[in-house]
Write a protein that binds this DNA or RNA. Structure first.
Lengths: 248, 248
DNA sequence: CGTATCTTTGACCAAATTCAAGCCACGTGG
DNA sequence: CCACGTGGCTTGAATTTGGTCAAAGATACG
């Protein structure tokens, strides 16, 4: 895990100093990680599970604006914009003591560079989301999501080609990420099944025989290979339950 | 201008070293600023005018993913994700020589910090856009846009309270930013006029008598005051045609 | 004065939301 | 072991929003 995400890009000394600031924190599904009622700063690396950054309307309608994947660097500062971070699944966060982190940031340029480049990655992902929300139909968005999900969620290749994708967070989160409703997600997955783009094994498990077809249906031909995810390098090393270091 | 945007946060020596890397570049409306066919990196500060960061679908449908305002720090790196930057209006960019900028970034921590904090601001703006595209109706989005526009576009207070907002980029850009069509923008502005939320003076000039009403209609009560824009501090100092320094 | 561009308006249509009910799997407690 | 309730998923029907197409006004520009 140390080789992934932020830590892989750091010098040994910086890693060490960072480790001294770290402590593992556990969250259960749907618990609040950061928000109004929490302490001000949040800095850390997600070790396992998924977090969602979201925002509500007065009427309760929710939009997820970003999903944090294992390996992602998390940083929320105490500015007072509506928004909160919750655990989409049970999750473990390697949290850094904020004062110490800030100081380390000052005199470890390799850390500053790593943090910056991870922010750029997040920005790219968010641009992709905004684009898909504004320019794509729900069906296209879902195809794009499924295709991309093979890059950061369990995707087991199968004999006859293709693979089986397991979505490990609830339908409602997919719906709120794609700006639609669970009903529509259901309808569309079944439609995709009907035309043979996917095969539904069970509600959270889909067989994808032709990934490139999904990519094209999701209008992300150029993007699919180019977009970066924290988790995409390690590719399910972590499903083999790696023993965790004292600090990620 | 030096006190705004990125430069206001820098030490004098850094400002000086930055100025040596700078050169002003002019773009006419709708010209390409950065994209596939351009050279790899783009680093600079927008001096005047507006840039749009956008992305196309194969069918030509365009989504604007971010508007750069005067004072905004621009940085696009040579990763190969679809997307391009164009001038929405005629614009002047204070561009930095990229190699030199990269080197300066290494040993000027104040610059690194400033660049980072501007990235965070951009991220907030993008989150707001993604949220509004996913969670709001077109009418709400437009109300939110108009309200926010008073923060970064010419907004002249008038005697009877409220003010007159001048939109200085074309309707089509508003439509593509809000993920809708010019027809819908037209219909909705007239509807807003009918219910008295705004008064249309001419197609690009609206009188807003009750800004807080627009804010509420746009579902951004919490956000309106909290969100930051590069331009919102200087507030039309620049409409008085400041003479420009050699480097922004 | 004609042409091009932008805006407005109308009619029509498709996509997707909402509301409602039904289904299924699961866990709990009698 | 079964009844029951809960939560998540599916399906249907009615409704609405907003997109597309087409044409008519406006406005600016040579």
């Amino acid at each position: 895990m140390r080789r992934q995400g932020i830590c892989g890009q750091l010098r040994a000394t910086t890693q060490l100093r960072l480790a001294r600031l770290a402590s593992i924190q556990t969250f259960s599904a749907n618990s609040r990680v950061w928000g109004d009622d929490c302490e001000h700063d949040l800095v850390g690396v997600l070790v396992s599970g998924y977090l969602r950054t979201q925002r509500h309307r007065i009427d309760g309608h929710r939009q997820i604006v970003s999903m944090a994947l294992p390996g992602d660097f998390i940083a929320e500062h105490g500015r007072k914009l509506p928004g909160e971070v919750e655990a989409a699944t049970s999750a473990r966060l390697c949290r850094f003591e904020r004062g110490g982190f800030r100081r380390l940031l000052e005199d470890a340029p390799d850390l500053a560079r790593a943090v910056y480049s991870l922010r750029v990655t997040k920005l790219d992902q968010l641009r992709l989301l905004a684009w898909s929300l504004g320019a794509l139909t729900v069906e296209e968005r879902l195809c794009a999501f499924l295709a991309l999900a093979t890059r950061f969620m369990p995707y087991a290749p199968i004999a006859r080609g293709g693979g089986v994708l397991t979505i490990d967070f609830p339908r409602a989160d997919i719906a709120d990420l794609l700006g639609t409703s669970v009903e529509t997600i259901s309808r569309i997955t079944h439609r995709l099944d009907a035309i043979g783009a996917i095969r539904i094994h069970c509600p959270d498990r889909f067989e994808i025989s032709d990934l490139s077809r999904l990519v094209t249906m999701g209008c992300i031909d150029e993007t699919f290979a180019a977009i970066r995810f924290a988790a995409s390098d390690l590719k399910w090393a972590r499903t083999r339950d790696p023993k965790l270091p004292d600090a990620a």
